[in-house]
Each structure stands twice: as C-alpha cells, then as structure tokens.
Design a protein around this nucleic acid. Structure first.
Lengths: 361, 361
DNA sequence: TCAGAGCGCTCAAGCGCATTAGTACGCTGG
DNA sequence: CCAGCGTACTAATGCGCTTGAGCGCTCTGA
C-alpha cells in the first residue's frame, strides 16, 4: 500500500503494471493541504502562501504530476490542443516539402506552451468542415490553423459560426471576428518576378499556376495580369494545373509547342518547375538560353536538377512559427488581426537569363 | 431561454456567440428520460427498450450531439487519440515524402474509428521520450506509433514502463508485451538489390546508407555484408550519412575518386541518389554506362532527374494503414504481434546497367 | 475598541459522461 | 396470493480538475 515514486526499476514485476498516474489528490495528501490549495498553487493563482506554493510544487515535481488534459478540458479550461487539417488527396501530398516544414515551425511555438497539435488529412474541403464540426462538438481543440485558403471558402464562415478561433495561413480577402490571418504577399512576389524577367528582356511569359480554387493562385494570376498591363506586355498568361509533375510537364509541352512560345516560364511549385525543365531539355531547347524558368518554391529539388533553378524562396518554418504565434495570441484572448509575411526572396540561379535575340516574330 | 437547434442562420446576431454544444442532459430532457438511459441507449448497452433507444438516437442526431472526448476520457474511456512523434531536425524533415505519405495511410484507418492523431516533431529521441511521458501523464493518448526504430532504442522500454500500447513502424529486434511491430524486410530487399546488381555483372558496390543509429540502416548494412559474402564479393561496403543531399553528394565524390572505384551505388534515399547522380555527371562519368545507381525509396524525384533512377518502391500509404490497423487492434485489447510488410519492388529504370567491361584492374 | 479588510486556506459544486446500485412494474410459477 | 425474477428505467457516484463561496485569523484605521 505504500506508494513509491515511479521508479521504473522494478521491470521484473512491472509487465502490464499500468503505473498509476498521480493526481492532485495525491499531492494534496502528501503536502498536507486541500486539493484547491494545490490547484491554486500549481496554477500561480493567489490564495496560497509562497511557502505552501513551493512545497506543493516540490511534491508535484517529485511525484511527476501532470494535469490531466481531460479533466482540465472538462472544467472549462479548453483542450490545450489546436487542430490542423490538410485537404489534399494523399497522392498530391507527398510531393511538397511545404507542409512538413510548416508543421515544424508550428510545433516549435506550440511546444513552448505545451499545446498539442491534432492533425488530420482529408480529401476535400467539405470533409475538412466536417472535421471542424466534430472537433468542436467533441471539445477536442481550442483553435485551428487553416491552410490553403480558397476563393469562396466555406471555412471562415463555419469557424465564425462555431466560435472557434483560427488562423488562416495564406490570407483571405475579407476579415472575420475571430480569425487571424497570416498573409503571403503573392502580389508583391509576382511583381518582383515579372519585374526581373522584364528587366532581363522577356516579353512573353507563361505562368503555370496551381489549383485555381486556391486563393493564392487567384492572387498570383491577377497580379501577373496587372504587372503585364503595367509593363505593356500582351504575351502573358496563366494556366492552372493540379501541381503534379505530370501536369506541369504536359502544360509545358503544350505551351512551348504553340505558335508564339514564351521565353519565360513561372511555375507555382518546385515539382512542376523541375518537371518543366526536363521537358524543355527533352524538346531540344536549352535552359536558360532558350527558355528561362522560375520556381515559386525553393527546395533541394531546385538544386538537384540541371541547370539549378531560380526560385522564390520563403522561410516556411518561420511561416509556421508566425501562424502558431498568432493562434496562441488569439487563444490568450487577443483580438483577431492580419499580419503580413515578409516578401519571398528571388534566388537567381542558373535557369534565368536574357531571352534569345531572335524572339519577337 | 428557448434553445433552438443550432441553425447558424442568424449570422447577424451570432458574432461571438459560442453556439453551446449539446450535452447528454439536453438529450435526456428532450427525450423525456434520464441521463443514464441516454448513455445506455447511445452506447448500445442493454437496459433500454428499442423504442426508447431509437427515440434517444433521433434526438441526439437532431441536436447534433457528439460525446465530449474530455468527459469520456475522464470517465476512463481513453482519449480516443493516438500519438505520433517524429524525431528529426526540422531541416531534414522536409526532404522526404515518406512521412506525409505514411501519415495519410494512418489517417485513413484512424478516421474510420474517429480517432484523433496527435502529432509532434522533436529534435531527438530524448525529447521524444519526454513527449511520451507527458502524453501519458496528461492522459492525452491511448497509444502511439513509433517511427525510426533505432539500435539500442530507449522507447520500447519506456512504453512498456508506462503501459502505453504502441506499434513500432519498421521493426525491432526484440519483442515487448504491448508493442506490436510492422516489420520492413530490409534484409530481403537488400538481397534483391545486390542479387540484381550481381546478375548485371557488378562486383564492386558501395552502399551510401542513412543514419547509423537507425535500426534499418544496421539491417541493410548487415544484409549487404551477408550477400557480399554469399556471392564471394570483396569490394563491397557501406558508408553512413545523414540522408542529406549534400552528404550524399560528398560521399559520392569521395567514393568515386578513390583508387578502386565502385561500379554501382546504392543510396538509402531518393534525395541522396539524385544528388549522387548529379555528382557522377559532374565528374564526367555516365550513368548507367560507368556507374549504376539504385535509390532505396521511390518518388517523383526519381523520375525527375536524368537518367531516371532505378528505385526500390514500397507502398508507404499502405504501410501507414497497416500500422494504424495494428494499433487499433491493440487498443481493442488484441495481443501484441509482429506483422511483415510486403517486400518492396525494384523498379528498374535507366540508372542501372552492366558495368563497363574494363573494370577489374 | 471594534468594524472592516485582507490573507491563506478549506468546502462543495460542477464540467459531461460511464457505471453501479437501486426502484418500480409486470409477469410467471408454486 | 405472494415469493421470485427479469425488464426498463432512475438515482447516485466518481473520474481529476477549477472555482466561487465561505471561514477563521491577523492587521489596519478611525
């Protein structure tokens, strides 16, 4: 009956021994105070003397006590967990390094606060909404991180309805009462890319974009159009794809085979850019002599193909950190707000150069 | 005071309206029975008539009721959540597609049972152990999935001590009371690779392995040695790396620059294989004319470099599914067991061929 | 001198659910 | 006619924690 501190040494008898978790009651007994006192002490609430607080803390430490999140959640404290759901078909998911990096960044911040991350992969946005509903009803999460914002997105409305705090990663058009936003400046980035290509002498550019339902795809397309207009370019357009290497390759083939072939290609991700580069080579053309290539996303892949790809590089881990920080601020009762991410840097490698002189016919 | 069903239509007044979650008490009231009856009815326990059960079910549905996981967990039912922690530095993480694929597979199975996945990224195994301890103490998870098993791994012992069910993905040497295992047949796979290379005529092979602390690295190295012995090969060895493209490239350069250069290189992941291929080309050698390359992991990357890489392909999503299924079996009270994964297939592409005839000097 | 205000602490209620121990009722069999 | 039993339900606990309402005590100020 004498409960010893969890030593773990008795491996012999341990077997399936569940090694009971200590509760506040145990602490209270040992410290000779009431459970409430323990609660106050451990939560840095007034109502206990420093001496008692210290004693309780020591006992708790010695016992290896940790609050049961279940009990905490039940008494109104929230679940100490945030949710992240990614709505992409499983196959598409693997290619990108984006998500894991983002998640690493998120974790760094959540770990500081001992917040858990509930993660789920689903097929589409409808399923994602269902997950939010379920999480909310089951009391599982205190807030969520929303990725891949879309044009005409049902999620912000749903989160409003549920009163679930959230951070939209990527940025939305409108604002919502308890949704913060971390905005990526796609418009500015596109302007930088187009500006640089223009400077190099390119007048005909094709943007091989991603899924057209995504908000940032839309922003990039608009920005491209605006920049084209500003520079007086007419040979500029966007083509949407599904981000896959196969579609990237197919579109590249189609575009370069057309009457007025572009001299520069801007790809919305690294995988398509690499696939596109391969197609260009396969057509007997040279990168960057005949065609310049820019990848919107930097990764090892960009330095793994030849020539090395010029890429728009952003600190995805920092992106995650920032988003998580916004969410914790929101959970602490802060007001929703919208913060910008720094502009991605254009890293010029070997895949961009002036266009061939004979262009223009 | 009249509580209406959560319609969500009143966006006007909603604002921060938290839209109260229905509880069993609400159901009990509406159905005109006691809370206990509701509990019995909803959990398919005897003690209520079919009529009442139906009525209760309907009311619950209509109210959009979902059990609070917190409350459930508190009353001893477990947290309906499993944990997965990945111990890799953030930078290393993004490169492979392995994890997200694995997770997709895991999710498929967990989703069926409405189990949540608590995900965490940490720096090293010590931190991972701390996370397990915390999760256990906080009552957060019912079981865990352990990835990257190591030689001399502290995690199985810890899980035993905590009595936390788990599934080791990749396979361990010894068995543990409540740990199931999903074993990858690295030995067989390596045998297949070496066999094929031998068949092609290769007699000198270098295996550019991954982290030497990982159990599967060890298994592959041993298997390589065994196969070499079996075939009577003496020019065969393994070099461990950190899986990064830079180390893969560096080792490749070193190995090919040495006196007796190998004619075949086996890389433990796709990133290193691609980087290695680039180095070979940079040295003025041709793949596969001068050097054959095999990648232990298939991905878009293998079809993105030239020549396309021969690769060992396994169904990572299925791997995840299988592991998750083992875990749910364990949670259902099943006994721990050890199941094998199917042997990966060797997909021969353009990077493997007979060695140059002049070899042997 | 005594009301009033802290201070440090205990008590008890309650969060939403599962579960064990009743309770009321109708039925059967002796 | 009633013991005995199964059925369909309710009442009461408890899980581990938070929290508002006390409750004695000491210290202050008029």
């Amino acid at each position: 009956m004498t409960d010893s501190p969890p030593s773990g040494k008795d491996t012999q008898a341990a077997r399936r021994a569940p090694a009971r978790r200590p509760t506040m009651k145990d602490i209270a007994q040992r410290a000779g105070v009431s459970e409430s006192a323990v609660s106050f002490a451990l939560n840095d609430r007034p109502g206990v003397s420093e001496i008692t607080r210290d004693r309780v803390r020591r006992v708790a430490e010695q016992l290896g006590w940790r609050p049961s999140t279940a009990a905490r959640a039940l008494s109104g404290e929230g679940a100490a967990t945030v949710g992240l759901v990614v709505a992409r078909p499983a196959a598409t998911l693997g290619v990108d390094s984006f998500f894991l990096q983002l998640i690493s960044g998120i974790q760094e911040v959540l770990a500081e606060r001992q917040l858990g991350l509930l993660f789920q992969v689903v097929e589409d946005v409808a399923a994602e909404c269902a997950v939010y509903r379920r999480w909310w009803a089951e009391h599982r999460v205190d807030g969520v991180l929303v990725v891949d914002p879309r044009t005409d997105d049902p999620r912000p409305g749903l989160l409003d309805e549920l009163g679930l705090p959230g951070v939209v990663i990527g940025g939305l058009a409108d604002t919502h009462p308890n949704l913060s936003q971390v905005r990526a400046d796609d418009t500015g980035a596109m302007a930088a890319v187009v500006g640089r290509l223009y400077e190099l002498g390119h007048r005909s550019v094709v943007h091989i974009a991603g899924l057209d339902s995504l908000a940032h795809t839309d922003r990039r397309i608009r920005s491209l159009r605006a920049e084209a207009a500003r520079h007086g370019l007419t040979q500029v357009r966007s083509v949407t794809t599904d981000y896959s290497d196969t579609e990237g390759a197919a579109v590249t083939r189609r575009v370069l085979g057309a009457r007025a072939a572009p001299t520069a290609l801007v790809y919305d991700n690294d995988v398509m850019a690499a696939a596109g580069a391969a197609v260009v080579a396969g057509l007997g053309l040279s990168v960057p002599r005949d065609v310049s290539i820019v990848s919107w996303e930097d990764s090892v892949l960009c330095r793994m193909v030849h020539p090395w790809l010029t890429a728009l590089s952003r600190d995805t881990i920092a992106f995650g950190r920032l988003a998580a920080r916004e969410l914790t601020a929101l959970l602490d009762g802060g007001a929703a707000r919208s913060v910008p991410m720094p502009l991605p840097r254009l890293i010029e490698r070997e895949s961009t150069a002036p266009p061939p002189p004979l262009t223009g016919a």
